[in-house]
Amino acid sequence: MALKFKGKVWVFGDNLDVDKEIIPFREREMGLMKDGNFGKWVMTPVDPEFPKKVKKGDIMVVGTNMGCGHGHQHANIGIKQAGISCVIAESFDRNFFKNSINLGLPIIELEGINKNVKAGDILEVDLEAGEIKNVTTKKTLKFTPLPDFLLEIMSAGGIEPYTDKLIAEGKI
């Protein structure tokens, strides 16, 4: 997986709970997502039309404590399935952060992102270089890239494909 993306911005607020705002708990528990397509449900409690409107490669920009509540990975899987290329947040809940890397969902933590980006802007992000270019406003933002071994896990597509790679290389 390349670590560069370009896409249109969708903005959501602070404290998005994995079960309340991101993937509705009840519908999942009722077996409505048995087909494994959580992407069809992403953010529907906030914007029922979101999965239909979002385009492949689009970028989610959110506030503080992204993905809070329980550590349910359906949120990360669903965001990926919906076509979102990257989630940029002021800060992440720890479980969401961890699940994103381990499931190969690119994420960037950058305080102040909300002041510099608005819905509909076009962003170009480079995870390795630690750079976000706002094509719409022509501003460039810098962030500290994740350590190499985490980028490696993320770009392998997550911890399972990464483990497969180690097995194939005879390392474990």
Binding site: G71, Q73, R94, N95, K98, N99, N102, L103, T163
Partner: peptide, 28 residues
């Protein structure tokens, strides 16, 4: 693999949630 592992902190043990990484952890 569950969110509420930090419970173990009540006895001075560091509880950390593996969540989606449990299968890989069992292998690695």
């Amino acid at each position: 693999a569950d969110t509420h592992c930090p419970t173990a902190g009540g006895v001075g043990c560091l509880g950390i949630n593996l969540s989606a990484a449990e299968p890989a952890f069992l292998r690695l």
